[in-house]
Amino acid sequence: MSSHTPGSADELDPPAPAGFGTFDFRVYDERLASNQRWSTFLDIEPLMRGPEPRPDWVVTSQGAIDTELGILKTGKEADVFLIERADPFDPDSGVIMAAKRYRDTDHRTFHRAASYTEGRSMKRSRDERALKRKSTWGRLVAAGEWAISEWGALKRFHELGLPVPYPVQIEGTEILMEWITHDGDTAPRLAQTRPAPDLLAFYYEQLRDSLATMVQSGIVHGDLSPYNTLAAGERLVIIDLPQIVDLVGNPQGMDFLLRDCTNMCTWFRARGLEVDEQELFGELMAHAF
């Protein structure tokens, strides 16, 4: 006896094409849980996707589903969530990424933007006026600008070979990027670690090399500290890049660089490594010019 009943999916939907079985895509779509969504990787513009060559772990399937696993950390400008992207027809395809979402209506550090963004220009005068008035639209624009700025910085740093999370995609005020781990867990911030002397010195070498690469390209992190540097085993990874500064174009560029050097050298010195921020700053200036 047939199990067909009036109003069931096989009556409402046309038969599947030959060779595709009887899979019901409409019903399948409706079965997405409240913490799930379809991947938009192939729907967004190419410039909104990460640089090529892409790592093998990036899931590009049109049928992939994003599942939100929970919040990883909260911040003043944005919150970071863990997202698993997987193709249900390929059980081995799943990957967990970090989703950084900038707040769009309550950008609490909006007032800090001016010193970082000197020398930048907005494409639309309406947006520029809204930013100056700090209106609701201005806060929306600010959130979008910070997200776009960090996206651009992640791509640029990655292409320079700097140790940053691989940027997977940007959509609106959300950036999907590589989840940096160590032994299966989120890598700790450098500030949370107590490395042995040899590892401490190796971390400093990595830091110095990264800063040299930045200044050679005319870039300053602008807010570098042990709290936005991750210790992934023996590897340092730099995060939180929306405020990157033009070393020459921004009148405060060198001040920001010296502050970055001071923040980092203070931490290393407190852990027993004899370093000096003025010496590091002078070394970096030689690389810059």
Score class of each variant (00 low, 15 high):
H4V: 04
T5C: 15
P6L: 08
D10T: 10
D10H: 12
L12R: 09
G19T: 13
G21K: 07
D24R: 15
F25K: 08
F25T: 13
R26H: 02
V27H: 08
V27F: 01
D29Q: 14
Q36Y: 10
S39F: 03
S39D: 13
S39Q: 13
E45C: 00
L47H: 09
L47C: 05
M48D: 15
R49G: 08
E52W: 05
V58G: 07
V58R: 00
Q62V: 13
Q62F: 08
G63C: 06
G70Y: 04
G75T: 09
G75P: 05
A78R: 07
V80M: 06
R85L: 05
R85D: 04
P88M: 00
D92F: 03
I96A: 07
R101M: 11
Y102E: 11
D106K: 05
H107L: 00
R112P: 00
A113F: 10
Y116D: 12
K123S: 05
R124H: 07
R126S: 03
D127K: 11
R129Y: 02
K132R: 15
R133A: 04
K134E: 15
S135Q: 07
T136R: 12
A142Q: 09
A142H: 01
G144M: 08
W146C: 10
A147W: 04
G152F: 01
F157P: 00
H158L: 04
E159N: 11
P163T: 11
V164D: 08
P167M: 02
P167V: 06
Q169R: 06
G172I: 11
G172N: 15
I175D: 15
I180Q: 12
H182Y: 12
D185T: 12
L190Q: 03
A191P: 00
Q192M: 15
P195C: 08
P195H: 03
P195R: 12
P197I: 13
Y203S: 01
V215E: 07
S217K: 03
G218I: 10
G218L: 06
I219L: 15
L224P: 02
P226A: 11
L230G: 11
G233I: 07
R235Y: 01
I239L: 13
L241T: 14
Q243C: 05
Q243S: 14
G249Y: 00
P251V: 07
Q252L: 12
Q252D: 15
F256Q: 07
L258W: 12
L258C: 07
L258E: 08
T266V: 14
R271N: 09
G272K: 05
E279Q: 14
E279L: 13
L280M: 10
G282F: 05
F289N: 07
